[in-house]
Simulated assay, not measured.
Amino acid sequence: MSTEVDAAPNLSALYAKAAVTGPIRRGGELPATEYVRRDITIDHAHLAEYDRVCGFGLRDVLPATYPHVLSFGLSVRLMTDPGFPFPLVGLVHVANSITVHRPVLVTDVLTQRVRVANLRPHPKGRQLDVITETSVEDEVVWRETSTYLRRGRSDDSAPRADRVAEIEPGSPTAFWQVPADQGRRYAAVSGDRNPIHLRALTAKAFGFPRAIAHGMWTKARALAALEGRLPESYTVDVDFVKPLLLPSKVEFTAIGDPGDGATFAVHSRSGKPHLLGRVH
């Protein structure tokens, strides 16, 4: 069932709704709802600020991760609807795959469709996909699958997914100094104000010693490091392996030519992987 949405949802209201309704959600099947938003134009000032926060240069082509920000409100609305089975707070973003079918221009007028699908077992609970398509006129130009984990009873029969890349630490391409306020800076441009990303005090309420970086910021920052070498059409997959605590100094490693296929990773200084990725 498709439902048309005229404007970007009010995220503050949706987060308040999530806080109130979360305790009463008891699992079950995923809803068949699809939200559709048409006639989306790019706010150039907002895009410029996103580029600055994530490390992209100013170009007439959208970064591959920017449509995720445009559709984020629709995703949150869907995951706070009465028919969605799990509390929004507590869902863990474990993987993300984006396919760019052709460059998306800042002048393009977009239509976005968001739905959830593929509820399935995970060794640590259950997982599901949030699927987003971005179109220009009738052409799908961008597609994303974000995989979320709802922690629960262990299921040893659930298949363990292969990681998208295995890169040994120790020979980094670059070092990144990620400041303590990185979560707040990304929240301001993305709308993702999950308390685990904002301050140490609010993160501790959810079991983290300090605030953690958004996974989609880490993916965006990695793609910014590959900017200018990516082909016009590609898929970029990432696994979010371990939280990146703020502040941190991390190692970024890229192997191969992104035009022909490449792998990349973000590791802590101790060698633990935060993000593993692949362009193909």
Rank of each mutant, 00 (worst) to 15 (best):
5 V>Q: 08
6 D>N: 12
7 A>I: 06
8 A>C: 13
9 P>G: 09
9 P>I: 00
9 P>F: 02
13 A>M: 12
14 L>N: 06
15 Y>Q: 06
15 Y>D: 00
16 A>H: 12
19 A>Y: 07
22 G>D: 10
24 I>N: 12
27 G>H: 11
28 G>W: 04
29 E>Q: 14
30 L>R: 03
32 A>V: 14
33 T>H: 03
33 T>Q: 14
34 E>S: 15
35 Y>Q: 05
36 V>P: 01
37 R>A: 03
37 R>N: 09
38 R>E: 15
40 I>S: 01
41 T>E: 13
41 T>G: 11
41 T>P: 05
42 I>R: 10
42 I>C: 11
45 A>R: 10
45 A>S: 12
47 L>G: 08
47 L>N: 07
47 L>R: 02
49 E>T: 15
50 Y>E: 10
50 Y>A: 11
52 R>F: 12
52 R>K: 14
52 R>H: 09
53 V>L: 05
54 C>M: 00
55 G>P: 10
57 G>V: 05
59 R>M: 09
65 T>V: 13
67 P>I: 02
68 H>F: 07
68 H>L: 10
70 L>A: 07
70 L>D: 01
72 F>H: 02
73 G>Y: 11
74 L>P: 00
77 R>Y: 00
78 L>W: 01
78 L>C: 09
78 L>K: 01
79 M>T: 12
79 M>S: 02
81 D>E: 15
82 P>C: 05
83 G>N: 09
86 F>P: 01
86 F>E: 01
86 F>R: 03
86 F>D: 03
87 P>G: 01
88 L>P: 04
89 V>P: 13
90 G>F: 07
90 G>K: 04
90 G>A: 13
91 L>N: 14
92 V>E: 02
92 V>H: 01
95 A>Q: 11
98 I>S: 01
99 T>Y: 05
99 T>R: 13
100 V>N: 04
101 H>W: 04
104 V>M: 04
105 L>Q: 15
106 V>F: 06
108 D>C: 08
109 V>F: 12
110 L>Y: 11
112 Q>A: 14
112 Q>G: 03
113 R>E: 05
115 R>H: 12
117 A>S: 15
118 N>M: 06
118 N>I: 08
119 L>H: 08
119 L>C: 14
120 R>G: 03
122 H>C: 07
123 P>D: 01
124 K>P: 00
126 R>F: 09
128 L>I: 07
131 I>E: 13
134 T>Q: 08
138 D>I: 09
138 D>L: 09
